[in-house]
């Protein structure tokens, strides 16, 4: 199935959890925050969140800034 991840289409297997997606993308779940359809997902919920077709995810993290 296909979801939108940071504005781009991303293929993920059926039943894929948010936690699995982050690992697939080589991201540290500890330093990335996820907005799913504009709602912030709590870090404790990453493993229990099963992705659904067409969901819009924003993966955000800290970068250098003043």
């Amino acid at each position: 199935m296909v979801i939108i991840c940071n504005g781009k289409e991303q293929k993920v297997p059926e039943g894929c959890t948010l936690h699995q997606l982050l690992l697939q993308l080589q991201l540290d779940p500890d330093t990335v925050v996820v907005e799913c359809d504009k709602q912030v997902v709590k870090r404790n919920d990453y493993e229990g969140t099963v992705l659904a077709e067409g969901q819009n995810l924003e993966l955000i993290r800290f970068v250098g800034g003043g």
Partner: peptide, 28 residues
């Protein structure tokens, strides 16, 4: 120290500022 928030660059997943800054040393 200040930090900003931006989209993860999915082409550069290892580019993580938190890998370079100790949370115990700095107040973010």
């Amino acid at each position: 120290i200040t930090v900003a928030l931006r989209r993860v660059d999915l082409n550069n997943p290892e580019d993580d500022i938190m890998a370079n800054l100790d949370r115990h040393t700095y107040w973010f």
